Simulated assay, not measured.
Amino acid sequence: MPASEYVTELRAKAGPGLIMFPTVSAVIFNDRGEVLLHQRSDTGRWTLIAGMMDPGEQPADAVIREVREETAVDVVIERLAGIALHEVTYPNGDHCQMVNSWFRCRATGGEARVNDSESLAVEWFPLDGLPELNPYAQHRISTSLAEDGPAWFAAPGEELIPGW
């Protein structure tokens, strides 16, 4: 998906240098305990539904919007599952640090399908049959498994995933 007008304006000022962005991710479970993933159109890799927040948008609103836009699935948020900083450098050289809040969500309606240009496929997967995922996606899923409990965060001085 092309960058938003907000990101385009920031990049015009900052070039490829470091910009921090607030982002959200959804770890979505259905009634069978399966997790909803999408296959990204830019990398071909399977991952969680995620995206950047819009200026003025609350994280909970952003995660519900992103899920609907990318998968046509309606969700309710069950809890905040974690928050962490992670770095991304895009193929064009743009450098970002994403402050990501991820939420444990429950699907309440809609049919999971490709709903925008960000996905090649959208599928429900059993936890014991997940496709290959990067360590960060695995971490967000594992920290979302408990129905209750505290949100995960890196302790002061701790890396998100050491060595990643």
Rank of each mutant, 00 (worst) to 15 (best):
Glu111Tyr: 02
Leu127Glu: 08
Leu10His: 09
Gly15Leu: 10
Tyr90Trp: 14
Arg11Glu: 11
Ile77Pro: 03
Gln58Asn: 12
Asp42Thr: 14
Pro55Ser: 04
Pro126Arg: 14
Ala151Val: 06
Trp124Glu: 11
Ala137Thr: 15
Pro91Glu: 12
Arg140Leu: 12
Gly109Val: 02
Thr108Tyr: 04
Thr23Ser: 15
Ala146Glu: 15
Asp74Met: 09
Trp152Cys: 06
Val35Pro: 01
Glu57Ile: 07
Leu85Ile: 00
Glu159Gln: 07
Leu37Ile: 05
Gly44Phe: 08
Ile49Leu: 15
Leu37Pro: 03
His139Asn: 04
Pro16Phe: 06
Lys13Trp: 09
Asn92Arg: 10
Val24Pro: 05
Asp54His: 14
Pro135Asn: 09
Val114Pro: 02
Arg79Val: 07
Pro156Gly: 00
Asn115Pro: 02
Ile28Thr: 15
Leu160Lys: 00
Gly109Ser: 04
Pro55Asn: 08
Leu10Glu: 13
Pro126Val: 00
Gly51Met: 07
Val99Leu: 15
Val7Arg: 11
Glu147Cys: 07
Gly109Ala: 04
Ser144Thr: 05
Arg11Phe: 05
Ala151Asp: 09
Ala62Leu: 04
Ile161Val: 13
Ile83Leu: 13
Arg68Asp: 07
Arg140Ile: 02
Leu127Trp: 10
Ile77Cys: 03
Leu10Ala: 13
Ala137Gly: 06
Phe21His: 13
Ser25Met: 02
Gly56Asn: 11
Glu9Ser: 11
Ala137Phe: 00
Arg113Asp: 05
His38Thr: 06
His95Pro: 05
Val63Thr: 05
Asp54Gly: 03
Arg45Lys: 15
Ala81Leu: 06
Leu48Val: 09
Leu145Lys: 06
Ala3Cys: 03
Gly163Tyr: 00
Gly149Asp: 10
Ala60Gly: 11
Gly157Asp: 00
Ile161Arg: 00
Ala26Cys: 08
Asp61Gly: 12
Pro156Leu: 03
Phe21Ser: 09
Asp54Val: 08
Ala26Trp: 04
Val76Glu: 13
Gln138Ile: 08
Pro162Ile: 00
Arg104Trp: 02
Val114Gln: 10
Arg45Leu: 13
Gly17Thr: 14
Ala107Trp: 05
Val75Trp: 03
Ser142Cys: 06
Ala12Glu: 14
Met1Phe: 10
Arg113Gly: 01
Arg11Lys: 12
Ala151Lys: 05
Thr23Leu: 08
Ala112Trp: 01
Ala62Ile: 03
Val88Arg: 12
Ala155Glu: 08
Ala50Met: 10
Cys105Thr: 07
Glu111Thr: 15
Ile77Glu: 01
Lys13Leu: 14
Pro135Met: 03
Gly15Tyr: 09
Ile83Thr: 12
Glu66Pro: 00
Glu111Arg: 12
Pro2Val: 12
Ile19Val: 15
Pro156Gln: 03
Arg45Asn: 14
Ala84Gln: 00
Ile77Ser: 05
Pro16Thr: 15
Thr23Asn: 10
Pro131Leu: 04
Ala62Asp: 06
Met53Asp: 01
Pro22Leu: 07
Arg79Trp: 06
Phe125Glu: 04
Ala72Ser: 15
Ile28Arg: 02
Arg106Cys: 07
Leu80Asn: 09
Glu132Cys: 01
Ala3Ile: 09
Ala146Trp: 07
Asn30Gly: 01
Ala107Cys: 04
Ala14His: 14
Glu132Arg: 13
